[in-house]
Design a protein around this nucleic acid. Sequence first.
DNA 1: CGGATTTGACCAGCGC
DNA 2: GCGCTGGTCAAATCCG
Length: 145
Amino acid sequence: MSDFRNNPTAAEGTDDDERYLYGDGSTALELSELLKFDEWVETEDHPRSFAGVSTGSSSTGEGAGSRSALAKERVAFKTKSEVEVLDDGYKWRKYGKKMVKNSPNPRNYYKCSTERCSVKKRVERDRDDPSYVITTYEGVHNHQT
DNA sequence: CGGATTTGACCAGCGC
DNA sequence: GCGCTGGTCAAATCCG
């Protein structure tokens, strides 16, 4: 609600790792590789039993972890900012809120409000660094030529 | 007025 | 078989 576009008051308050702030008020902001995306989870999400560290996951740790089975365009971006919804040039309509046990913070679901865009965005706060925001993009824009 | 946002409830898949 | 989580949709409401 209060977050609409980079709120110069909030976003500016906490420096920005990536100065992708267009002081020009430009609209189209391509964050293809502008954001510092850590090759994090870009595979399948199954760690449902990731509740903390009890599950006692295999002591081996991950075992290879060569999950190259990519199903869809899933990209996870970890950005350091106060506002989770950064204006990337598209309109996002919030369509759901859910509470994740892994984090005392709720997960927000956004969808492209464009007419021919079926892109979905998932925004969640980091558990170790509440100042970090995990933005997961799903799909690719369609209303763009 | 329109568009956007919010909360709740529902559904599905999978796990044990 | 049941429970649980995650995810989505719907309606209602509010704001600009």
